[in-house]
């Protein structure tokens, strides 16, 4: 057969592991940065390009009251200090402490599955290839606390359309980065999550105008602990659906398995729409603490159906028994 064109066999030991490759890029960038800093010592400082410290973004504010909120915004300090990001530990302050260990530049998101043009997006494409908007959304955690967050991002639909979903695509599966060396929570001996963290949406939920890919908050790029460099935000669902630090988006024809659902199907359904009428085995979902809360003013408010986005999204679930499809 094609004897003359034998592909040279590469010994597996010769292949540079991705982690080393990434580290090399990091070193080169660090070296380059050192040089440019010296060269520009007298010039005014430009925005640092380390990709780690949040930097300002250009964005617009869209028309439409559903994209904004008159409620008091949760302060930046609280949004960035109180997080659930179990890859870095289960305490609320673990992500703020340890997520810095995650390399977010270089970053690539792979879009695959039932699309006409599968491909990758890198960090630069994400930050400059889409029209960024500010969306002020309520975020309701299944643990019965909530925040009001000014995200910066673009509709997930804009991203998906670039890759041209096929008509056979019915669901979208998302995955978070899984890099043990940089994520201490995944190394904990008692951790029972099957990493990487996975989430999913029905395609019509994914294409809904409220569904956002966030790359920033409060006008700047996302801090690591909030899911840098890009995360999903689905404001009418419990917070764990809004998967962080995404590396893979796959269009599929069957409902994908999600991390929490696999762990405890009775507690976490695929839909996980905010619903005060459907009780959770751990926490009552009738009320929430709007953060910041304080000792003497707990700020306990009633939870609203679909987190207050009923008018926009109820149509998606017409005819479905939401106590069954929780």
């Amino acid at each position: 057969m094609s004897r003359r064109f034998v592909v040279p066999k590469i010994d597996s030991s010769e292949i540079t592991p991705e982690s080393v490759y990434l580290n090399r890029r990091e070193l080169m960038r660090a070296a380059g940065l050192g040089l440019s800093t010296m060269a520009l010592a007298a010039a005014p400082l430009t925005a640092a390009s380390t990709g780690s410290a949040p930097r300002p973004l250009d964005f617009t504010s869209p028309e439409g009251e559903q994209f904004s909120s008159s409620e008091q915004k949760t302060p930046y300090a609280d949004i960035t200090a109180y997080n659930n990001f179990y890859e870095f530990g289960t305490d609320k302050d673990d992500p703020a402490r340890y997520a810095k260990e995650m390399t977010i530049d270089p970053w690539a998101v792979e879009v695959s599955g039932l699309v006409l043009k599968p491909g990758k997006l890198n960090l630069e494409d994400l930050l400059s290839g889409f029209d960024l908007e500010e969306r002020i959304y309520r975020l309701r955690c299944v643990e019965a606390w909530s925040m009001v967050v000014p995200w910066i991002g673009f509709p997930l639909a804009d991203l998906l359309q670039r890759f041209q979903p096929l008509s056979t695509a019915k669901y979208v599966e998302f995955r978070t980065l899984y890099r043990r060396s940089e994520m201490r929570g995944t190394r904990s001996f008692g951790s029972i999550i099957d990493w990487p963290y996975r989430e999913g949406l029905r395609l019509d939920e994914a294409m809904h105008p409220l569904t956002l890919i966030a790359v920033g908050l409060y006008g700047k790029t996302l801090p690591h602990q909030n899911g840098a460099p890009l995360r999903l935000v689905v404001p009418w669902k419990y917070g764990f659906k809004s998967i962080k630090s995404i590396v893979s988006i796959k269009l599929v024809d069957r409902q994908p398995a999600t991390s929490w659902q696999s762990l405890a199907p009775r507690e976490y359904g695929f839909y996980s729409n905010v619903n005060p009428a459907v009780d959770h085995p751990r926490w009552s979902q009738k009320f929430e603490r709007r953060l910041p809360s304080s000792l003497f003013r707990p700020n306990r408010i009633p939870t609203r159906m679909f987190n207050g986005y009923e008018e926009q999204v109820a149509e998606l679930y017409r005819g479905m028994d939401l106590s069954k499809y929780y």
């Binding site: 609280d78 200090a81 609320k92 606390w145 603490r289 953060l291 809360s293 707990p298």
Partner: peptide
């Protein structure tokens, strides 16, 4: 911590 707002945005969870 309570007097110095060292309990963070969600004192319920801390306490």
């Amino acid at each position: 911590d309570g007097l110095n707002s060292g309990l963070g945005p969600d004192p319920a969870e801390q306490v």
